[in-house]
C-alpha cells in the first residue's frame, strides 16, 4: 500500500547534536526533490501497528540535498513521539508523509534577507537560509536560545549566511539576552534586510514580527499548532488570521503566513 504522499525512508543518521536535540537524516529522493523551505512532514513515531502515540508528529524540513536524495530534520525531544523518534537507529525505516503545507516565499532577486529563530525554531530556517543564498540573496541570521547548549544552527548557518548573530539568556554564546535584545543590538543590519523569516515560540515570534514590521520589513512567520491530519481535513490545527472571518488551517494555508495576517493575540 503506497500512496504518493507516504514515503518509507531509510534512516541514515539519527544523532544527538545538543542535549535533547537531534539531527535526523533520511534517504528520501522524492521528498528531497519536492520539499520546499517552510514545508513540513508528518512522521510516524510509533513502531509498527502500535497506537502509542496514535498521531503522526509534524516536523519542518531543516534541509534537503537533491544530489544525494536525502532530507534532514532537526528536532527537540519534547514528549512521547519525539522520544521514540530519538531511539530509532540507522538502517531502520520511517514512515514519512509529505511534503505538506505552504512554505516561505522568496523576495525580489538581489535583496538581502534575514532569518530569525529561537530554540528549535531555527530548524526550518537552516533550509531557508541555504535556499535564499542559492537564489542569490545575502542572508543574515539572528538566532537565540536559553544557553549555548540549546543554541542550534550557529555553525551550520555560517555556510549560508553573511553573518550569524547569536544571543543566549545566560550569555554563554553571543549577546546576553533574548531575541528582542538581539534584534535591538543588531538593528542596523536587520534594517538592511528587506524580507525576514521568523520561527520560534509563539510569544518570541509575535514580538520579533512586531519589530520587523515596525522597521518596515516584509515578514513571514512559520506557526506551530497541534495537528491530527496535516492535510486540511480535520480542522484541528486552526488559528486566527485576517484571511478569514472564522479560523484558518495552519497545516495547509500555512504553516508560513505573512506576519501582518496573523492575529497573535486572538
Amino acid at each position: 500500500m503506497t500512496l504518493p504522499i507516504i514515503h518509507l525512508c531509510e534512516v541514515l543518521i539519527n544523532r544527538e547534536v545538543k542535549p535533547g536535540f537531534y539531527e535526523l537524516r533520511l534517504h528520501a529522493p522524492m521528498l528531497a526533490k519536492s520539499a520546499a523551505p517552510g514545508q513540513f512532514a508528518m512522521l510516524q513515531c510509533a513502531a509498527g501497528k502500535s497506537t502509542d502515540p496514535l498521531l503522526r508528529r509534524p516536523l519542518s524540513f531543516s534541509n534537503v540535498c537533491k544530489k544525494t536524495g536525502s532530507i534532514v530534520f532537526l528536532y527537540q525531544v519534547k514528549g512521547k513521539g519525539t522520544h521514540l523518534l530519538s531511539r530509532i537507529s540507522e538502517g531502520d525505516y520511517l514512515d514519512v508523509m509529505g511534503p505538506l503545507g505552504t512554505g516561505f516565499k522568496l523576495p525580489k532577486p538581489g535583496t538581502p534577507i534575514a532569518v530569525i529563530g529561537c530554540g528549535i525554531g531555527v530548524a526550518p530556517l537552516i533550509y531557508m537560509a541555504d535556499y535564499g543564498r542559492k537564489h542569490g540573496h545575502d542572508v543574515y541570521a539572528f538566532i537565540a536560545a536559553r544557553s549555548k547548549d540549546s543554541l542550534l544552527g550557529a555553525d551550520t548557518l555560517t555556510a549560508s549566511c553573511a553573518c550569524v548573530y547569536t544571543a543566549t539568556d545566560d550569555g554563554s554564546h553571543g549577546v546576553k539576552g533574548n531575541i528582542t535584545d538581539l534584534l535591538d543590538e543588531a538593528a542596523g543590519t536587520l534594517a538592511l534586510c528587506k524580507t525576514t523569516y521568523i520561527c520560534g515560540p509563539w510569544k518570541a515570534m509575535a514580538v520579533s514580527a512586531e519589530k520587523c514590521l515596525g522597521l518596515g520589513l516584509a515578514c513571514q512567520v512559520s506557526l506551530e499548532s497541534i495537528m491530527a491530519c496535516g492535510i486540511g481535513a480535520c480542522l484541528g490545527c486552526t488559528c486566527k488570521t485576517t484571511r478569514h472571518i472564522h479560523y484558518t488551517r495552519v497545516c495547509t494555508e500555512g504553516p508560513v503566513f505573512q506576519a501582518e495576517e496573523v492575529l497573535f493575540d486572538a
Binding site: D52, P53, L54, S225, I226, C234, L235, G236, C237, Y247
Partner: peptide
Amino acid sequence: PGNPPPRIHETPA
C-alpha cells in the same frame, strides 16, 4: 466558526 483552539489533544490510543 467552531471552537477556539486548542481543538485536539492526544490521549492513550
